[in-house]
Design a binder for these strands. Structure first.
Lengths: 142, 142
DNA sequence: CTTACAAGCTACAGCAGGTAGAGCTTCAAG
DNA sequence: CTTGAAGCTCTACCTGCTGTAGCTTGTAAG
C-alpha cells in the first residue's frame, strides 16, 4: 500500500494535486489507514501516471477523463481514443502556428528598435499603433 | 465621450473585460455620466487598444503594466521596454519548442495506432507506458 | 515506551485572465 | 412617453492547480 507521498514522488505530482484529482473524480477514493490516511494500490499509481503523462502531452482534464473511460472498457474500437488524440494534435498545431506568428512580430518589433529614448521606441510604437498589426484580432488563445 | 460599449466594439474587448481592466488598475477610472455610466476619452481608447494589442502578442497583464508605465514617461531610454519584449520573445520561443515536441509525440502515437480495438490501442498504450515517453521524467518505473 | 518530527489530514483562499448571470437603472430613438 | 438596448454592481464560476493554517498520524531513534 502506497502513501500519498509515495504516489507524489513516483509521478512527480504534488500531494495536493493528487488530492485534487480525487476531488474532481479523476482518481477513485482510495482506502484509508486506521488513522485516516490515504492508502493507494499499484493500479492507482498507474492511473495517476497515465493522467500525468497525458497532462504532459497537453490534454485537458476533460479529455483525460474521456481517455480514462475508454481505457476502462477495452472492448470498443479505439477510434474514439484516436479522435481525442487527433483533436489534441490539431489544437497543438494551431497553437504552434499562432505562436510562430507572434514570434515573427515580436522579432520585427525588437529588431527595428534603435534603443534610443522611450519617446520613439519602436516596441511601444508598434503596440500603440494598431494599423501596423499583422494579426487580426479574434481570440487570444493561450 | 465614449460609452463602454463603444470601447468594447472598437477594440474587440468584452464589456466586462473593460471593467475588469479598470478594477485591476490597468485602465484609469473614467468619468461618469449624470446617471453614473462610464464615459471614456480617446486617450482611454488608445490605452485599451494598447493593452489588447499587447495581449494578442501574449504579454501578461503584469508585463503590460510595466510597458504602460514606461510609455507614460517617455524621457527614459527604451532599453527597459526592449528587455520586456525580449523576455516575451524568449517565452514564446520556449513555448514553441515545447509544443513542437508535443506535436511529434502526438503524431507518432496516432500514426502507430491501427484503429483496431481499445485493448491494443497505441494511443492509450503510450499514455500508459511511461517508458516510451520522450519527455524525461524521474523514477516512475523503479 | 516516549518523544520528535516528517508526513498526512481538512478546509479554505488565491493565482491568471477573464466570463456569465441576476437583478436593477439609465439612455436614446421613435 | 415609452420601450428596449445598454449600462450598472455584485457575485460566482472557469481551468488546473498551489499554498496556508491548524491540527492529527505514522515511524524511527533513544
Amino acid at each position: 500500500m502506497l502513501s500519498i507521498g509515495t504516489m507524489s514522488r513516483k509521478t512527480g505530482t504534488k500531494v495536493q494535486t493528487v488530492r485534487y484529482y480525487e476531488q474532481i473524480g479523476l482518481l477513485p477514493e482510495p482506502g484509508r489507514s486506521e488513522g485516516g490516511q490515504r492508502r493507494y494500490t499499484d493500479d492507482d499509481l498507474d492511473r495517476l501516471a497515465f493522467i500525468r503523462h497525458a497532462r504532459q502531452l497537453g490534454f485537458s482534464l476533460d479529455a483525460i477523463r474521456e481517455l480514462l473511460a475508454l481505457a476502462d472498457n477495452p472492448r470498443q474500437p479505439c477510434a474514439n481514443a484516436d479522435s481525442i488524440a487527433a483533436r489534441q494534435l490539431r489544437q497543438v498545431e494551431k497553437r504552434i502556428m499562432r505562436l510562430q506568428a507572434l514570434r515573427t512580430e515580436l522579432r520585427r518589433m525588437i529588431d527595428e528598435c534603435n534603443g534610443e529614448s522611450i519617446a520613439d521606441c519602436r516596441v511601444l510604437e508598434v503596440l500603440r499603433d494598431h494599423s501596423e498589426c499583422l494579426t487580426e484580432h479574434e481570440d487570444i488563445g493561450a
